[in-house]
Design a protein around this nucleic acid. Sequence first.
RNA 1: GCCGGGGUGGCGGAAUGGUAGACGCGGUGGUCUCAAACACCAUUGGGGUUAAACCCGUGCGGGUUCGAGUCCCGCCCCCGGCACCA
Length: 885
Amino acid sequence: MSDRYEPASFEAKWRQRWKDADLFRTRTDPDAPKFYGADFFPYPSGAGLSVGHCRNYVPTDVICRMKLMQGYNVLHPMGFDAFGLPAENEAIKHKTHPAPMIKSYAATYRRQMELVGISYDWSRSFSSSDPEYYRWTQWIFELLFKRGLAYRSMAAVNWDPVDKTVLADEEIVAGRAERSGALVEKKWIPQWFFKISDYAQRLLDDLDELDWPEGIKSQQRNWIGRSEGVQFSMVIADSAAPDEVSEDGFAVKNSRGALAFDVFTTRIDTVFGMTFCVLAPEHPLLERILRGVDEVHAESVRAYQLRAKTLSDIDRLATNREKTGVFTGAYAINPANGAKVPIWVADYVLATYGTGAIMAVPAHDERDFEFAKKFGIEVIQVIAPTDGAQVKLPFIAKDGVLVNSGEYSGMPVFESMTALGIWIEGLGIGERKVQFRLRDWLISRQRYWGCPIPIIHTKDGEMQLVPQDCLPVELPMVDEYEPSGDGTSPLAHIPDFVNTTDLDGRLGQRETDTMGGFACSSWYFLRFCDPSNKTEPWNFDKAKYWMPVDCYVGGAEHAVMHLLYARFWTKVLYDAGLVTVKEPFARLENQGQVLAQTPYRYPRVDEKLEVGEEGVLLSFVDAAKLPEEDIFYRWARMSKSKGNVVTPEDAVGGYGADALRMYLLFVAPFNADVQWSNEGMQGQVRFLSKIFKLIDESKAFYVPEWKGLVGFEELDSVAREVRRKTHKTIRKATADIDRFAFNTYVSSMMIFVNELTDLVQRNKANPSRAFALTLSEAIESLIKMLSPSAPHSADELWTTLGHKGFVVNEVWPTFVSELATDDLVTVAIQVNGKLRDTIEMDAAATNEELEAVAKSLPKVQSHLEGKTIRKVIVVPRKLVNLVAS
RNA sequence: GCCGGGGUGGCGGAAUGGUAGACGCGGUGGUCUCAAACACCAUUGGGGUUAAACCCGUGCGGGUUCGAGUCCCGCCCCCGGCACCA
């Protein structure tokens, strides 16, 4: 063996041996505890992996490998999220079919993951586009359908004109499609939804029990958006008794013989301050209202509605946009005081939230205030600070009392909210209600490359589920699958697919929309528990054994999409008695990104930069051609488009797989971004070389049977020191891996190696028996602790100590508290809280001894001169503070 | 605006209320080499000193405490998310 880390000479050899030994096949020892560690289901892009992806996979691998050594049955699977837009778009670009393309991309991913030495059990791998998998995705769809949680309805949905499909709300960011960047248009077409809104409260409540980053939990809470308030009916003044009117979730009621509409408010305490109402331009009652007003008002409302319709979401939702609106000519009655208030139409009220209509209280709401000011509407203050002080309107705060509010005047705000809610309920015109922002999950896509929805439309317009023994509804293999753009799926144009017979043997038509990719990734972690089951999605007992995922690792960008959907499906499956957990992922960790130096040049005079761009992106080749002063470098996320990618092949070829792994672990806290540097990689090469050198120098003293002997040996002070450092490091490294503090785990090994190297240098000329025994324990422990992060090197070093087999099959070292305890400690001596000296003391020294020694120190005495000691604080083994004045 | 996370040497970052800056990168000086690269040794918060002593230092201002990077109050700045959600 070399006394240096020379990866080219052994890393590939070990990877082959692991493979030959089928080392990472999931063990199911009935007496062992389980550990399920998983990475987010990746889409295998044609660009392959960068070292950035390894930042996700390596840490999960480290904790899984440690758990293996600690005797757990470890489930550490990997598969591919192959269905969906990214795959299809890439296939179209390359004029190929997504199925073979994805297969080859996934093979590349696997090869790269293996190159880095990740311990996946590949026998459990699958792709979401495998018929044996999506058969069960369809099976779960049918379960949702039967439970009333999958429905088809007409809706104004987000249409992405670039990707030519509809998208879920979660995929829209500020009016643009997150993926394509296209401005989203509204389209009114029938779509499939999952009724996630039924689970809003549970999705909110159960967050509390999860060991997840606070930021992700808070994002989910915001997205679910629970608010408590009162919903009540407003009667339209002088309106004739209408026929029954009710449409699409809008509460348009026949109430007391007049037209009426519902409003939702979280500030019922301000109801006496209502000076107008606003309906969303899309509000269905407007049609009726306009019949009862004069033509001038009706015309202006219609014109306004038309304008609102053509306005894109991005314009409409632009912040700080001036409020617009028109008066309808109609009035509503404030139920609190009988006042007639004008009804306006304005697009600052959203049709999709609450009832699409509000009571406006300009004195206590910024938006209403702005609107009232612009249109000269009255402002009536009904809340005042408790101390009666004058306040500037709008006054939003809730700490105050009601004024100008009839019999409720003088009542504190919070008390009045309950009182007025009860009063409204007593009147029978409304109720206290909880409103959620979360809307149903739009799941259908007008694209080819997705899981077909297993529905047959019959001649009479009924919908039937494809019988379970006929699943999967297979995606037909066709050459032409590009999106049509007319709002129908490519599948709609394949007669062989569409035309079928229904359950009664009559002609029927298949549903042609496919499911969005997020459906497929909402249950894959269950399939990993039992991936080759031919008769059911998973065996109940196997899922019961492995679930939940104990540690789930991936990027923060899935905070509200995948993670919310997967939680929802898990709860539905729980309700159906198919799984025993209410939550799929007990612990979640988000890795930071890997950034690379990326060259830009300053824009030329005639160039305009995109918003957010700092300069013009350059390739490294182009950057080399330009004069230095024209170029600047920025840290940017590694991506193919930026040309700054370092691949695992680059890193492993240049420095070694173990160096790459150690670097990614050490360079920054797990959840922080990393600035990639070759110097940092070289640092890990140096560290690994130090270990090889240490083992090379120590192996002469190595006693394989140390464990049975060390207890009988009288330990000298050097041997005690070796043991102490060993057990301290075990304690630190184990705890650090468990808490995802991989940087300090590596650091603790560096400290250990430096200390051992020192001890070996000082004692190698004349080593005692005790030293040899404790050193044997030390280097064995070191190799074991190293093995999760640098598995190739660990196995190589293990062999040089004369062992056979793999370190991952060894038992993770445990520490003994007494052995990790110092018998000599450094005590800090302070005068008035300022450090003046430190002393070495026996750890067993009493407080009195410490105090006496502290007082006797010259450096201390010079600071005590002319002062009287008022107080002495002694922290055993740590510190003495003399308080003097 | 609201929610979440942060602010510590030249850089990445360590620090259960108890010696701030572990560990590493980079820098400086040296060894090896014909030379370079690699490697190895020493040193490295700022001021101050021949050296020490000593002084200053964890975004800013207050507070609690024998003692605050850490706890409390009020600000400033950065990152991420949401954003007319009534």
